[in-house]
Simulated scan of single mutants.
Amino acid sequence: MSYSNTAPVVWRRLSSLSELSAVSEKWHFLNQQCGGGLFCSPHWQLHWVSCFWQADWRLETWICTSDDKLLAILPCYTQPDERSRKRVMFPLGQGEAEACEVASEFVDLLIAPGWSQLLPDLARLIASSGRPRIKWRAVNSGANILQLAHALGHSVVQASGYRYLYSSEHGFKLSSQLERKWQKIVRYESKKRAHFYWLDKQDACDLWPELKRLHQLRWSRKGKPGAFISDVFNQFHQMLLLQQPDSCAMAVLKIDGELAAIHYYLKSTEYMHFYQAGWAEPFSGFSPSAMLHLWAARQMNNLAYDFMLGAAKSYKQDFCNQKQLCYQLDVYADVVSYALAILRKLKRQAGRLKWLS
C-alpha cells in the first residue's frame, strides 16, 4: 500500500491500554509490512500486557499517522526502578520479573517502508518529553531502535550474543557424531521404531504438562529452577496455544512408542522460533532433542529455523548455518549517568584485557 507524502504527519503519545488496543488492526498491518515478526506484533505484545501488566507501570507508546494510516509505532512503557528511584522505559514484551521472563526477542520500533525520515522527529519528541532511561535487549543489528538510540545520544550499545539460524538453502554441516546419530534414527524410522510428527492444537495443549515435566526434571538435576517454574509463564504460553494456535507449534519424537523428546515453537511470517524443549533421560543415548531439531529444520520450506539468542559458544552453532550479532541497548537520561556507564564499560574491557594477557 502506498502512502500520500502530501498528507500531514501527526505524532501522538498513547498513555492508556485502551488507546493501544484501538490501533491494533493498523499496528498488525504495519507489522506485516515490516516483515511480520511475531514479537513485534500486537498479538504477542497485547497478550504479554494481559498477563504481566502491573499497577505502577505506565504506557509510553508513540505512534505516527498520516491520512488515517499508521506509519510508525514505538510500543513502550515505563516502570519504577527501585535502585535509582526513577522510571525506566522498556519495550512491551520485556521488563517482567526474570523468574517468569518469556524472552520477547528482536522487538523493534516499526516504521513503514520509505519513512525512515521520521526517526529524527521521534527522537526530538522523546527528548522533549522528559528523556527517560531506556533499556532494550536482544536487538538485531539492523533494528530501527539502534538508529533511534543514536539520534537520542547518551546511548551504550553492547554485543549480547548471536542469533542462530538454519536456512535450508545452505544445508547442514554436521559433526561426524551428530551425523552418525542422525543416520541411526533414520534407520529406526524406516523400521517404524522412531516416529517424528507435529501436534495439532488439542494434542499440544494435552502434552504441555509433559513438556513442562521433562524440562523441569532435567534442570532440577542441574540445581537450576528451569523456565516453567513460574505460574504466570505457563499461563502466558498455555493461553497463547488456546487463543493464537497459528502462532505456536509443537513437535514430538517417539522411540519404540515412548515419548523421547518434545519441542515448543513460536511462528512468525518468516521464522520458526525454537523456544523450549523437554526430553526423556532413558533415550539420552539417541540425543533425542538434537534429532528432533534436525528433523524439524528439514520440514521448513519457506521459513528459517531460528534458535534465537545464544552465547558466542553455544550448542546452537552445531545446527545452524547462519548467525547474526545481537545487542543490548541502554539510553541514559543525562550526561552524568551516561559518563558513568561509559567508565564502567571501559573498566570491564580493561579487566578482560588484563585477564587475557
Results as ranks from 00 to 15, higher is better:
Met89Thr: 08
Ala138His: 15
Gly142Ser: 15
Leu178Gln: 04
Glu101Met: 11
His170Ser: 05
Val102Gly: 04
Gln94Val: 09
Arg131Val: 06
Ile145Pro: 00
Ser175Asn: 07
Tyr164Pro: 02
Trp136His: 15
Ala149Ile: 07
His150Val: 10
Phe172Gly: 00
Val186Ala: 04
Gly114Val: 05
Lys192Tyr: 04
Val156Leu: 15
Ser175Pro: 05
Gly93Ala: 11
Arg137Gly: 08
Ser116Glu: 15
Gly153Asp: 13
His195Asn: 07
Arg85Asn: 12
Phe196Ile: 00
Lys201Asn: 13
Tyr162Pro: 00
Arg85Ala: 13
Cys100Tyr: 09
Arg133Gln: 14
Gly130Asn: 09
Arg137Phe: 09
Ile111Tyr: 01
Lys135Ala: 11
Pro132Cys: 10
Tyr188Ser: 03
Glu105Met: 05
Ala127Ser: 15
Lys191Ile: 03
Ala194Arg: 01
Leu110Ser: 07
Asn140Val: 02
Gln177Val: 06
Leu148Ile: 09
Tyr166Glu: 01
His154Tyr: 13
Phe172Leu: 04
Ala99Lys: 14
His195Met: 03
Gly114Met: 08
Ala97Gly: 11
Leu119His: 07
Trp182Gly: 00
Arg124Gly: 12
Phe172His: 10
Val139Lys: 06
Lys86Tyr: 10
Arg124Asn: 14
Lys184Trp: 08
Ala151Arg: 10
Ile134Met: 12
Glu96Arg: 13
Gly93Pro: 09
Asn144Pro: 01
Ser104Gln: 03
Gly153Val: 11
Thr78Arg: 07
Arg193Ile: 03
Ala112Ile: 03
Gln158Leu: 12
Lys173Asn: 12
Asp200Cys: 06
Glu101Thr: 12
Leu92Met: 12
Leu122Arg: 12
Leu122Tyr: 13
Ile145Lys: 01
Leu119Cys: 08
His195Gly: 00
His170Pro: 00
Arg131Asp: 10
Ile134Thr: 02
Lys173Trp: 02
Glu82Asp: 09
Trp198Ser: 00
Leu199Val: 02
His170Phe: 10
Ile134Asp: 03
Ser176Glu: 12
Glu98Thr: 09
Ser160Gln: 14
Leu146Phe: 05
Gly153Met: 12
Gly161Thr: 11
Arg87Asp: 12
His154Arg: 15
Ser168Gln: 03
Leu125Thr: 04
Ala143Lys: 03
Gly114Arg: 06
Ser190Gln: 15
Phe172Met: 00
Ser176Val: 04
Lys135Thr: 13
Pro113Glu: 07
Glu179Leu: 14
